[in-house]
Write a protein that binds this DNA or RNA. Structure first.
Lengths: 131, 131
DNA sequence: AATGAAAACAGTAATCACTACTATTTTTGG
DNA sequence: CCAAAAATAGTAGTGATTACTGTTTTCATT
């Protein structure tokens, strides 16, 4: 296996992601990290996000909007996609991994895991009735 | 609202989709429908799949693999993405929409629905230990 | 500190799924 | 039969992501 070497760019990306709770996309991360590191390239952002996700340091989220979102909080929790503002917010709720057993009950193959996310309206969009 | 007109192409697409239980992608549908209707264009396939999905005649599935899958079975059921063969199979299991209440319990916004799918190994890939 | 191979980089080109556009063909109510 | 609306084929464009390439950075070993 290839030895991982340190990189300032990867540090910047991870550090920025840890300050955000809104699960930004690669493009948002790129635009922000560029303020501190103007010469960073978009390809570097993508490559490092993939490296970090493969290494378990961050999570890659598929929220059904055609763009990958990233989360530096790797503890188990769930997400909601706001259909009004397009944002992604955390959802504190009890663990629902028991759905895996329910899925496995009448299935011949092997159920390794599940992906669950919610959609609706975030609290901020509920307040501002701008929609 | 625009009056829907009949189209042979839309018929072919829906008819083909009803013969398949593996939730094909637009591209797979295109290649197959083209055997009966060689002049159909890929854009027509995409447009009609969207029309049919908006009309509730089929379902558009997001299985996290970056490609939309389509299902002519609109009854409530779940799906598993096979990590070995990349296929999508049906999963008969009890309804788990109660997760919506669990999600809403400690949430200030509004939870409209959820997306849940499973991943693992389909029964066919379990049998053939080719992997 | 010097060195050299592996890793990472910036910048750009390419890919892939999908959507938009346009001139032509089909459908359908009257 | 006829014309307006809808749909089509074919092509061009878009947006997110990946691949490629020559250069720079990292770092274990000297």
């Amino acid at each position: 296996m290839a030895a991982r070497k340190h990189s300032r760019q990867r540090d910047s990306i991870l550090q920025f992601l840890m300050t955000r709770k809104d699960h930004p996309t690669a493009d948002i991360i790129y635009m922000n990290v560029r303020q501190r590191n103007p010469s960073i390239s978009l390809g570097t952002v993508y490559r490092n996000l993939t490296l970090l996700a493969e290494n378990g340091e961050i999570k890659r989220l598929n929220m059904g909007d055609g763009v990958d979102h990233f989360d530096a909080d790797t503890s188990p929790h769930y997400h909601l996609f706001c259909e009004k503002c397009g944002g992604v917010v955390d959802l504190k709720m009890e663990d629902i991994d028991s759905v895996i057993e329910k899925a496995a009950a009448h299935f011949d193959g092997h159920v390794a895991g599940h992906v669950t996310y919610f959609y609706g309206t975030c609290s901020r969009c509920m307040e501002s009735g701008d929609f």
